Simulated assay, not measured.
Amino acid sequence: MKKKKNYSLRAFINDVHLWLGLGSGIILFLVCFSGTILTFEDEIKDLFAEDFTVEGGDEKLSIEQLISVLESEGMVSSVTVPAKDGEAYEFSVKESPEQRRGTTYYVNPYSAEFSKKRESSLDGFFFSMFKLHRWLLLDSSIGRPIVGVATIIFLILSITGIVLWFPKKKINWKTLKPGFKIKFSARWKRINHDLHNTLGFYACIFLAIMSLTGLCWSFQWYRDLGSEVMGAQIFGGRGGPRVESEAQIDEDEMISIAAVEKITAQELNYEGKTSISFPSGDKGVYSIRKYESAKLSPLIADNLIVDRDGKVLKKEVFNDKPINLRIASLIKPLHTGSIYGGFSKLLYFLACLIATSLPITGTFIWIHKMKKKPKKE
C-alpha cells in the first residue's frame, strides 16, 4: 500500500484556487462579460450616432458670439475647443443653475450652426451592462458588496493562478516554456487547460489592476484605506479646496473669453484640446483644463484657474504633481483601460475577454478531474 502524500502548500493553493473559482464563477463571468462590453462603449455609441459635420469658412466666430446663439437654449456653462480645425466646439448648456450636468451641443465655429447631442439607441443597453457590472442588476446596496467580495476573490484567484502557473518540477526554461503557448494540436482537454493556464497568465497583470482599482467603487473602507496609504484622496475631485475670485470688479469689467484663451496659451504653451468652465456666481472663476495632443494619454490634463480680472490664481501641471496624486487621480481610467486611449482599451478588452472565459475553462478542468477514476491501491 502506497503511503499518503503530505498535504503540500501547492495543494492548498490549488484547492483555494479551485473552490473559490467554482463558488464565484457565475458572478465573475457576469462581471467580466459586462466589463468586456463596456470597454468600447463610447466607440460603439459613436458608430451609431449621427455625425455633425463642420464645414470650414474664412474665419471662426468668437466664443462669445457662439454663446449668444446658444443662450436661447439655456445657460451656457462651459466650452471645449478641439485641438484641430474642422471639428465642432462642444458647449454644455444647463436648463437651470441647479442642474448638475448640462446638455452637450455641437457647434460649427464658422457658421454657428448647432446640434443638440441626441440620446443613442444603445444608451439603455449600455446602462443595463453598467448596472450588471456594478450591481448585478440588483439594488446597489445589495449588488455592490456582492460584486466587491467577488472582486476580492478574483484578486486571490489571480495571485494563486500565477503561483500554479509555475511548474512543480525544477524551474528552468524547459519547464517554463509550455506555459507560454497553447498546444492546439493536442486533444481538447489539453487545449482547454492551456486556454485557462496560458491566457490567464498573460492577462493576470491587467486583471490585478482592474481588481485593485475596481474595489474603490465597492467599499468605502477600501477607498479610505487606499487614500490613507497613498496620501491622496481617491475620487477627491480636481484637487484641493474650491478657488474663489479675488477680483473686486463688476461683471461688465470681466476679461473676455478670448483673453482667457490667450492666457491659457501663454501658461500652457502646447497644442491640445481645451475645456473652459465659465464663472458661476459672484465668486466664480474661469476653470481651464488642457490636454496636450503630443502626450500618450488623452486623459491627462493640466489645470489652470484664472480670475475675472485675468490673474492666474492656480496652475497645476500634471507631470509636476507627486506620483501619489497622479495615481489617485487616474483610478478610473486605470480601471476602465482608457488611460492610453485605444491602445490600452484594446489590451483591456482582450484581458476582459480572457477573464470571461476563465470560469468556463476552469469548470471544464474540474469536471475532467472529477471524471477520472481513482487509482486502485
Rank of each mutant, 00 (worst) to 15 (best):
L30K: 07
A328C: 02
G239P: 03
P82S: 00
S218P: 00
A294H: 07
H133F: 10
L215A: 00
I37D: 01
S140H: 12
S297I: 12
K295G: 08
F278W: 04
L20A: 13
R223P: 12
P374D: 13
K183Q: 14
S141A: 14
T151R: 02
I209Q: 03
G231R: 08
L157K: 05
L313P: 00
K174E: 14
V163Y: 12
E95K: 11
E246Q: 13
I26E: 08
G200R: 01
L268W: 03
F154T: 04
S141T: 15
K314L: 15
L176E: 12
G362N: 10
I26G: 13
E50M: 04
I159P: 04
Y202I: 05
N192F: 01
K45N: 08
P279R: 04
K177R: 12
A208N: 04
D51K: 15
I360P: 08
S329W: 06
Q65R: 14
L358Y: 02
W188T: 15
W19C: 05
M254C: 07
P374T: 13
P279W: 13
F130I: 11
I300V: 13
R101M: 01
A186E: 13
V317M: 11
H196I: 08
L155V: 06
E253A: 14
K283A: 08
N269E: 07
E87N: 03
I367E: 09
D282M: 11
V260P: 00
S329F: 01
E71G: 08
S121D: 15
L138C: 09
P374Y: 13
P82A: 01
S280H: 15
T175G: 14
S218M: 03
G86I: 02
I255P: 05
F235E: 08
G214I: 01
D15M: 11
W221K: 05
R238Q: 14
E50Q: 14
E71Q: 10
A208P: 05
L132R: 05
S329M: 03
S329V: 01
D123Y: 12
K332M: 02
E251R: 14
K84T: 09
C204E: 07
F235D: 05
F33T: 00
S8Y: 09
I209S: 03
A328I: 02
Y270H: 06
G362E: 06
S140T: 15
V16C: 11
S115N: 15
A351K: 08
K131T: 11
F278E: 00
I142S: 06
V260R: 02
K314M: 12
E119S: 14
S275V: 10
L9K: 07
A203R: 00
D85N: 11
G102R: 04
L137P: 05
A88I: 06
G21D: 12
L353M: 12
F91K: 07
K345L: 02
I339M: 04
G214P: 02
K94S: 02
L138D: 11
I44F: 03
Y110R: 06
W165Y: 10
K372R: 14
K372F: 09
I152R: 04
S140V: 10
W366S: 09
F180S: 08
L18A: 14
L9D: 07
W135M: 10
E90S: 04
S92Q: 01
S329A: 10
Q266R: 07
L66F: 06
F235Y: 13
S245G: 07
I288M: 00
T39N: 07
E228P: 09
L28A: 09
F125T: 02
F125I: 15
G362Q: 05
G21Y: 10
I159D: 12
R223Y: 10
R100F: 13
P82W: 02
L164R: 07
